[in-house]
Write a protein that binds this DNA or RNA. Sequence first.
DNA 1: CCTGTTTGACGAAACGTTTCGCGTCGCTAT
DNA 2: ATAGCGACGCGAAACGTTTCGTCAAACAGG
Lengths: 335, 335
Amino acid sequence: MATIKDVARRANVSVTTVSATINGTAPVSDALKARVWAAIREVGYQPDPIARNLRKGVSTTIGLIVPDISIPWAAHLAKSMQRAFSEIGYNMLFASSEDDPEREFSEIEVFSAHRVAGLVVVPTSRGENYSARLIEAIHVPTVLVDRVLPQSHFDSVTDDNLLGAQMIVRYLHKLGHRDIAFMAGRAGISSSDERLAGFRRTMDETNVAIRDELVRQPVYLRDQAYATVQQLMTMRDPPTAIVCINIAQLLGTMAGLGNLGLSAPEDVSVISFDGFHPAEGWSPAITSLKQDIATTSTRAAELLMARIREENQPEPLVIRVPPSLQIRSSCRAVE
Amino acid sequence: MATIKDVARRANVSVTTVSATINGTAPVSDALKARVWAAIREVGYQPDPIARNLRKGVSTTIGLIVPDISIPWAAHLAKSMQRAFSEIGYNMLFASSEDDPEREFSEIEVFSAHRVAGLVVVPTSRGENYSARLIEAIHVPTVLVDRVLPQSHFDSVTDDNLLGAQMIVRYLHKLGHRDIAFMAGRAGISSSDERLAGFRRTMDETNVAIRDELVRQPVYLRDQAYATVQQLMTMRDPPTAIVCINIAQLLGTMAGLGNLGLSAPEDVSVISFDGFHPAEGWSPAITSLKQDIATTSTRAAELLMARIREENQPEPLVIRVPPSLQIRSSCRAVE
DNA sequence: CCTGTTTGACGAAACGTTTCGCGTCGCTAT
DNA sequence: ATAGCGACGCGAAACGTTTCGTCAAACAGG
């Protein structure tokens, strides 16, 4: 590999001058600039990111930490993120926390040691003093995605869950549903909390009393949803509609219904917050909110880059990206 | 951050000795070793991976390049890979080639500049002289996944596609199917070529003549499959079974059938090589091969680490991981 | 004409490691 | 005894950059 020294020798200048022309950090006469650029091209010089990294104390790499990349939502996020950053010359270190805060903090530490320029984190939001631990662990520009923290210390981008819940409840209400079951996630995870809060609020607004026994929490993994839906549907007075919060729940719900010999929308309407599931060609096609991942990624990248570049740090921002309701065939009207 | 110098000062030894105790690269007396380790703990020293990287010329990072992380198969691969490598202290740079060889080569270059210890690549396998270009571009231990190259210069891990095709054809044959449609991918992509070859071979073995008009190639994207399946099913003498090679095809096929008002398995049996799709709870539940991604990742990681560590480089190995047939309800017996 | 400022270029230090080569010590074999 | 050798430990160079401080020349204002 050609080094900066080779360029200097070739252009008959000092390495300082070469560095200055490349980075524009110091004035260089046009004549020399031309010679240097020519020399760079001739020897095929590419700056060594590692050496630069060591000297400057910061790299041109972004760290991405998600709970589980095999969740379609996260995979799409990773794809959009990687594209957004690679366009501006950054590359991406990647890790899964597997929803384990210890792993998460350990990955944060590793990434920090590698001097990432910034971090994109879908926080696990678990464990004691999580927020404080996170603040203490992170000393890099960071943007949180999907799950936000109370009185966040970090920039965040997340779905507009209150709006989403409103769309879902109003839609079901319009179809005549009153006995609506809601599968919430773990309490303390903002996306779940917000969706549940939005559900409650909109139910209130539409003057429908919530039947507490239909609100199940926490239902996080597929198997829990599988069990829960069967409990729900074997009640004396089962719900006419079920709201799922994410794809794991949706998969479990559908399997559970199948196991009872029930199907949607004939026996019960099913609707989901998570739009990443089979649509056309399978039945039922699930009516669901579609997250706007492209926008989420773009906003997150923008926020992060602003943090990385800015000297004067503004207050942490929380951006909420509105979802859209995709009406398909898993919900039917009831009398 | 504590540096190695701080440790040296604290333990009252030279930095050389500290380095030697940490890396075991030179003999150090037990007394000193103890002092050094104590000092390390006391000052909370963590070696700087960047500096080490610069000096040694190689990092402890693996680069992963896949065509599209949002494909469930790739997402699961990324997850398994990341886990496998993080367990042995490696971390992972990640990029999508978006099935564009130029992007792919550019990412290879970037990763090389970052001095990755090794590369895991799902090659795009496109473009002129692809194989030669790849060999020229890569100067790092590398393992190819899913798609292998003719007379490979690299270690490779891939599904046992011949076996998979055999399982599929025999299963369909047992159900009485003779008019079997096959959607192949782009020619030149080993996974597609092998699956098609296996299909032909097993059809031969079972003494069924292949109807050429039922073998469609290339059908790569979802929309192509959507169109193709409709052509197939509106033929005078339509197939009784359709074999899909990947999930994009399967999604297109299902949507196309839906558009014709047809469904599986009533109107036609559908079977797929790609096991990452909805199963329970939706209908139809697709009978398909399940790829063994965990094994694939493990083997790939093993091969790569062997390359990274070994001085004496053995011949490139091609490992084929057998899939398993998951029989569900998308195929039915015919007369 | 002198002083002060700006422009352009450079040598050398610094970033935090690993590694090369050398020196010292104590031991063994002549 | 002494040469030779292995085990230990150390100083300094090296990895490829960026940046600090210095300096010469050119140019401005009085």
